[in-house]
Design a protein around this nucleic acid. Sequence first.
DNA 1: TAGTGGTCTAGACCACCAT
DNA 2: TGGTGGTCTAGACCACTAG
Lengths: 245, 245
Amino acid sequence: MSRAQRAISDLKLGFRPLYRQVREILIKRIADGTWQPGQLLPSEPEIAAELDVSPGTVRKALDEMTAENLVVRRQGRGTFVARHDDARILFQFFKLLPDSGTPEFPESKVLRVTSGVHEEAAGRLGRQPKERIIVLDRVRMLGGRLCVLERIHLPAFLFPELENREIPNNLYQLYATGFGVTIGHASEQLKAVAATADEASYLQVDAGTPLLRIDRIAFALDERPVEWRVSLCRTDRIHYLSDLR
Amino acid sequence: MSRAQRAISDLKLGFRPLYRQVREILIKRIADGTWQPGQLLPSEPEIAAELDVSPGTVRKALDEMTAENLVVRRQGRGTFVARHDDARILFQFFKLLPDSGTPEFPESKVLRVTSGVHEEAAGRLGRQPKERIIVLDRVRMLGGRLCVLERIHLPAFLFPELENREIPNNLYQLYATGFGVTIGHASEQLKAVAATADEASYLQVDAGTPLLRIDRIAFALDERPVEWRVSLCRTDRIHYLSDLR
DNA sequence: TAGTGGTCTAGACCACCAT
DNA sequence: TGGTGGTCTAGACCACTAG
């Protein structure tokens, strides 16, 4: 389609800015694996020529994608698909920090992995009630100290054979490189709750101890919810950081 | 200074992009009251002509300021200094939402206002230990239900005679319009704690009930810390929302 | 209808990086 | 040294708002 024709169809159909259309095309290429995490993108003029738009329009699309942590620019080298490396997880998805000292990526120990029908999880993940759900329980440590107990729910069809795999510390990297599911953003709801006897024994506290409960839904690049995670945290030496900007 | 001269001084001193210099000039005008909250800014070409830069550079500065909620653009009308109206507070600074139902601005009831030496607060606010600090206690309600008990600490020299004023529900609007102190952003640390007997009686819960403790430092446009706030929240029917993007 | 911000284009020059 | 992203400029046209 020529530029003139495209402009006309924009007028007749619902209007979307050209740079947003470019952005969606580029995101689709990351989501479907055409461009893998860590891979170098074509240069801005190359993308512009291929899509028949001006370089400034590609630049504006990449500006937004940089702000969303979907790509990383390195001056003099190029633009790369963002990877879920530990540093990014720590910055974007892990908000629990020691009250004093430097931020740290937590170590994890898997307690069990099961799967089956789980209607509540299916509902939270936008799936049919009887679809198979994988449930992963683990504890996490910061500074060698146990502080998080969490349960993770996943739609089984997106993560085939996950039960039979080695479960690494960095799950979002596994989702991306092992199953082609890239987490783009997440939404968390926080409450203060009292530890049950069971939870208390895992976290080595008394029953009834106040815990921070984090209820997270994580979304893939195509905006589908793909993970439901409930984390229980003892916050006697760590806190949850939230910046309001 | 001509453009050529400015370019040379940029090279010799530490380099800062022109659009960031423009941004800082514009923020300064908001911070010092040259442009009041709600006021219409000059048009982009006018600002560009006055500062002797191209319109695109002004646009990029305003792009960033829009993303930071410092100004609001309205197509066809102009660009306005952002106001701390209830809608903005609700969106940017008040993250406690009902578990079901629509977001709502909380009502407040002031318990007491005092002032005096408060070394811990002075330290958190970057002031000298003996500087006078105003302390404001209040409770807040959502849906007619009492759910937050909070203590707010302010450097007295920035808020003269605040003790003798009517204290409105929307404090950040008061800071801006009554004292010329505009809050730009804030940082919160969250923990789960057990209610003391005193706290429990205010919040109408049993002593030991888990509460969400929010420890906030709020910063003015010049990046000085100007408010320290500790909020204790019962989260049986509300939660704290955090979006990870 | 006039004026504003929103979008798109086009091209120049600079800073940074790999080689 | 060549290629990349980073910055800055200049101007056209469109969509929205107010009068």
